[in-house]
Simulated scan of single mutants.
Amino acid sequence: MSRIVVVTDSTASLPQKVVAERGIVVVPLQVVIGADVMDEGAEGATPELVAEALRGFRPVSTSRPSPSVMLEAYEQAAREGATGVVSIHLSGQMSGTFESAQLAAREASIPVTAVDTRQVGIATGYAVLAAVDVLDAGGSGEDAAAAARSRAAASSSLFYVDTLEYLRRGGRVGAAAALLGGALAVKPLLTIKDGVVATLEKVRTATRALSRLEELAALAAEDRQVDVCVAHLASPDRAGQLTERLADRLADNLSGREVWCGELGAVLGAHVGPGMIAVCVAPVHEA
C-alpha cells in the first residue's frame, strides 16, 4: 500500500500542533545573526530574537536548507515506510529552498514531487494542508501537488510594513522603492504577485493601513468559504485587533473556523522587520 508524505519548510508557518496531527515533515531554514547560525524554530531562531537584532542594527540574514538536508528528510521518510513525497515550499523567486528540493528529488530513493507555491508564509502552509487533505481522502501524490498549487494560486497574501528598508536590505524590493517610501513617509501595503513582493497601495498612517488590510481581506474572500490568518512581528496588539474585526466581518465565510493569529516566523520576519502585519485569505479546498 502506498503512503505519500508531505514535506514543507519552516516558513510555511503551520502551528506545531497541526504539523504533528497531520504528519507533516518540516525542514527548517536558517537565520544568521552576527556570527550565530541557527535553525528557525522554538529551540533556535525565534521571532523575538530577530526583532531584537533588527532593532539593535545587528546584521541578520537567512539561508535555505541545503540539498543534502532536504535529501535526508526524504530518505528518513522512506526509512519510515513512505513510498513517495510531495515537497511543498515558498516561492522559488524569493528563496533557493525550492531549488534545493528539486536537486534532492533527483537523488532520492523514492519519487519526490517538488512544488513551488509562489507564495510565502501561511499561504504556503494552507497549500500544504490542501495536499494533506487530498492524500487523506485517498488521492495520489500528483493530485496532492495539484491541490497545493491550486490553493496557493487562489490565496491572497496582504501585508503592511512600517518601512521598506528591511525588504530592500534583503533584495526583496528595489532600492528606489525603499527610498520613495521613506521620502514620502508612506505606509506601504504589499502583496505577493507572480512569486515576488509587489506594491499594492500606499497609505499615510498605520491606522489607515490596518483598515485597508481589513477591507482588502474582505474583498479577497468574496462570497467563498475561506481560511484566514493574521501574522505579525512584534505587534501583538494591532494583530489582535485586526483578528477580532476579521472574525466578525467574515463570520459567514468562516462557518465557525477560527481566524489564526500568531507571530511571523524568524526567517520571514528578518526580511520585513518589526511592526509588520499580514493577512492571508485562502479559499477552502474541497478534497
Rank of each mutant, 00 (worst) to 15 (best):
R257C: 01
V112H: 06
S235N: 11
Q93W: 13
G174Q: 05
S140Y: 11
E222L: 12
L90C: 08
D227Q: 14
A101Q: 06
G92K: 03
K202Q: 06
S91K: 05
A185D: 13
R79E: 11
R151W: 01
Q119D: 07
P283K: 14
L158K: 05
L264M: 15
V279S: 00
L180Y: 11
V120C: 10
C280S: 08
V132A: 12
V230D: 00
D237A: 11
A108W: 07
V25H: 05
L184R: 13
T97F: 05
L179H: 03
D133F: 04
A152I: 08
V112F: 04
D227K: 08
S140T: 15
S10H: 11
R245Q: 14
A127V: 12
R224A: 13
F159C: 04
V120E: 03
A282D: 10
G269A: 10
D194P: 11
V115H: 06
L164E: 03
R3Y: 05
A130E: 01
S255L: 13
E214M: 12
G181T: 03
A287P: 15
R79P: 03
Q241M: 11
V284Y: 01
V5I: 15
F98C: 14
V279D: 01
S66W: 00
T11Y: 07
V115Y: 02
G139W: 02
T46Q: 07
Y160E: 02
L179Y: 10
R149T: 14
L71A: 07
P65Q: 07
I277K: 04
V27I: 15
L242M: 08
D9T: 13
H271S: 02
S157E: 09
V226W: 01
L180F: 06
L14Y: 07
A220V: 10
V115K: 08
A145V: 10
D162V: 13
V272S: 00
P283C: 14
V26K: 12
V27T: 10
G23M: 06
T97I: 11
G174P: 01
M1L: 13
V115I: 13
D223S: 15
P47N: 07
Q93H: 15
R64I: 12
A114R: 12
R245G: 14
A206N: 13
C261T: 12
A20D: 12
H89S: 10
V7W: 03
A101I: 11
A77F: 05
G141R: 06
A148L: 12
A153P: 00
E48K: 08
V69F: 02
A220T: 11
A73R: 04
A217P: 05
